[in-house]
């Protein structure tokens, strides 16, 4: 896999997210940016088995972004896969448009609704269980937030998936260390997430969530876990690439002003909307 190509894709995705969110001034840039590399690795890193233009292909891999407030990060990718008309990106959150601030299941390529936290691993377990039962070899990937791991339902689902040996299920925890009110470490410590997933019976590994090499190495463990589901704790930075947003909880759903926009675009090496 050509890492430079993935770096280009990550830059492209940050640009597309930026354009969508800033055009309508609605959305969550920092939460989306912390998982850009995770999304690019899954969709463009030769991991997910998908068919261009066929969001309903029966044996497609299922990808769920359980942290639904970061849905915008998936939309440009799904449009790029020809799942829907790219012009929809410009109608994001607009009346009559397909794409909302949170992901609805009616959007081609969105496997299940998200927005409320704590559902993705259970829903993903349903996909993975059905695959085993039907002797189908598709895999299910769930991207969830570390703050989402506060939800007890995540751990009910984790226990279930391990008991049923769902080694066709992968949970990728976007560990950006922040929730709305501050740092998780200070507010309510999530502790050793790798150890927690491991103790629930998963194969768990921690990686740098902005490193394609590390993400792809971890994702290559699918199928080698002796029947265990795979949890990848991806250490990330919320708002990655924008200095004044990085690690700053107050930016969770704030939209920058004109001056801040210029700074951000300069740092990211992105174009203004007018230039794209």
């Amino acid at each position: 896999m050509n890492i430079n190509h993935l770096e280009d894709k990550a830059l492209w995705l940050r640009q597309e997210c930026w354009n969508m969110v800033m055009r309508q001034r609605k959305g969550h840039i920092p939460s989306s940016y912390s998982c850009v590399e995770i999304i690019v690795a899954l969709y463009y890193g030769g991991v997910a088995r998908l068919t261009r233009g066929r969001p309903d292909a029966p044996n497609r891999d299922r990808i769920i972004v359980s942290k639904g407030h970061a849905a915008a990060v998936q939309y440009p990718v799904l449009a790029d896969l020809d799942y829907f008309d790219k012009r929809e990106l410009k109608r994001y959150t607009q009346p009559g448009g397909l794409l909302g601030m949170y992901a609805d299941y009616k959007i081609p390529g969105i496997e299940g609704i998200s927005g409320s936290l704590g559902h993705g691993v259970g829903m993903g377990s349903g996909f993975a269980f059905a695959a085993k039962q039907n002797n189908e070899d598709y895999r299910t990937f769930v991207v969830l937030g570390d703050g989402e791991c506060y939800e007890g339902s995540i751990w009910e689902s984790a226990m279930f998936a391990a008991h049923h040996n769902l080694d066709n299920l992968v949970a990728i925890v976007d560990r950006n260390d922040l929730c709305i009110l501050g740092r998780t470490k200070e507010l309510l410590d999530l502790g050793d997430l790798e150890g927690k997933w491991q103790s629930f019976g998963w194969k768990a590994i921690t990686v740098n969530g902005h490193s394609f090499e590390e993400l792809l190495d971890a994702l290559s463990l699918i199928g080698t876990t002796s029947g265990k589901p795979l949890a990848i704790i991806a250490n990330t930075v919320k708002g990655k690439g924008i200095s004044f947003m990085e690690g700053r909880p107050e930016w969770h759903n704030r939209i920058p002003d004109e001056e801040q926009m210029k700074v951000a675009l300069g740092e990211l090496g992105l174009k203004t909307m007018a230039e794209t």
């Binding site: 299941y105 496997e111 299940g112 704590g118 559902h119 691993v121 259970g122 829903m123 993903g124 377990s125 349903g126 996909f127 993975a128 269980f129 059905a130 695959a131 039907n134 299910t140 007890g152 339902s153 009910e156 689902s157 226990m159 279930f160």
Partner: peptide, 19 residues
């Protein structure tokens, strides 16, 4: 299990898979 929350989430994935 005595895990009603997961039971419902799991059911959604199964139903979306045609069950």
């Amino acid at each position: 299990g005595i895990s009603e929350q997961n039971m419902v989430d799991l059911a959604s994935g199964l139903a979306l898979s045609g069950k």
